Simulated assay, not measured.
Amino acid sequence: MTYVIAQPCVDLKDRACVDECPVDCIYEGKRMLYIHPDECVDCGACEPVCPVEAIFYEDDTPEEWKGFYDANVHFFDDLGSPGGAAKMGVIDADHALVAALPPQEHDE
């Protein structure tokens, strides 16, 4: 089991979760953040600090965003397990599900 970042993060990337993560497993893609399923220790520190409530425990992900589990997992297919997001910086890619979404509007 792992945590999942879903659609409310797309085009927002607040990064409060990144600052809170004790194991540096939240990676930044082009349009959203992704939790590495093999590096996440399921501590839950990221979930309460997300200002748009985009982070869910895998089993608690709302039905409308269930596809984001695969997006979080398969974002790392080519990257493997780098062992920490900080050294990677922004990765100039997104999972196909995210890349195909129209621009998301957020209240400022």
Rank of each mutant, 00 (worst) to 15 (best):
Tyr3Ile: 03
Cys43His: 07
Phe75Cys: 00
Val41Cys: 03
Gln7Tyr: 10
Phe56Gln: 00
Cys50His: 01
Glu58Pro: 07
Ala100Asp: 12
Ile5Cys: 02
Lys66Val: 08
Tyr69Asn: 10
Gly84Arg: 01
Glu20Phe: 06
His106Ile: 09
Asp94Pro: 08
Pro22Tyr: 09
Asp14Arg: 10
Leu33Ala: 10
Cys9Asp: 15
His95Gln: 08
Lys13Gly: 09
Ala93Lys: 15
Phe68Ala: 00
Ala54Trp: 04
Ala100Leu: 08
Pro62Glu: 02
Cys40Asp: 08
Asp94Glu: 11
Phe76Ser: 05
Thr2Ala: 13
Ile5Gln: 01
Val18Arg: 04
Pro51Leu: 06
Leu101Lys: 07
Val49Cys: 02
Glu58Leu: 13
Ile35Ala: 01
Leu33Cys: 10
Thr2Val: 10
Gly44Asp: 04
Ile26His: 10
Glu63Phe: 11
Val98Tyr: 12
Asp77Glu: 11
Phe75Val: 02
Tyr27Lys: 01
Asp14His: 05
Asp38Val: 11
Glu20His: 07
Ala96Phe: 03
Ala85Glu: 01
Gly29Cys: 05
Cys46Met: 12
Asp70Phe: 07
Cys25Met: 04
Gly67Lys: 12
Gly29Met: 09
Phe76Trp: 14
Glu20Thr: 05
Tyr3His: 07
Val73Ala: 12
Cys21Asp: 06
Asp42Ile: 06
Ala86Cys: 06
Ala100Lys: 13
Ile91Glu: 14
Pro82Lys: 03
Val49Phe: 00
Asp42Glu: 11
His106Glu: 02
Asp24Lys: 03
Gly67Tyr: 06
Gly80Arg: 00
Gly29Asn: 08
Pro51Cys: 06
Val49Arg: 00
Gln104Ile: 14
Val90Thr: 13
Gly80Thr: 05
Asp60Thr: 02
Gly84Ile: 01
Ala6Glu: 09
Ala93Trp: 11
Val73Pro: 04
Thr61Tyr: 11
Ala99Met: 04
Pro37Cys: 08
Glu108Val: 10
Thr2His: 15
Gln104Phe: 08
Pro62Thr: 10
His36Met: 00
Ala93Leu: 08
Pro48Asp: 12
Glu28Ala: 10
Cys50Thr: 03
Glu53Ile: 10
Met32Ile: 04
Leu97Tyr: 08
Trp65Pro: 05
Val4Gly: 01
Pro51Asp: 06
Asp60Glu: 11
Thr2Met: 05
Val23Gly: 01
Asp14Thr: 09
Tyr57Glu: 13
Ala85Pro: 04
Val98Phe: 09
Val10Ile: 15
Met1Ile: 01
Lys66Asp: 03
Cys40Ile: 11
Cys46Ala: 04
Val23Ile: 11
Val90Ser: 13
Thr61Ser: 03
Lys30Thr: 10
Val90Tyr: 11
Pro82Ala: 04
Phe75Glu: 06
Glu20Lys: 15
Ile55Phe: 07
Gly83Met: 02
Val73Gln: 09
Phe56Leu: 01
Asp42Pro: 00
Leu97Pro: 13
Glu47Ile: 12
Val52Pro: 03
Arg31Ala: 03
Pro8Leu: 08
Val52Met: 05
Pro62Val: 09
Cys17Ile: 04
Asp77Lys: 15
Phe75Asn: 01
Glu63Gln: 15
Val10Asn: 12
Ala45Thr: 12
Glu47Val: 14
Ala6Arg: 14
Gly80Phe: 00
Val90Leu: 15
Ala45Lys: 04
Pro62Asp: 00
Lys30Gln: 14
Asp70Val: 06
Gly44Phe: 10
Gly83Asn: 02
Pro48Glu: 13
Asp107Gly: 13
Glu28Val: 02
Glu47Leu: 14
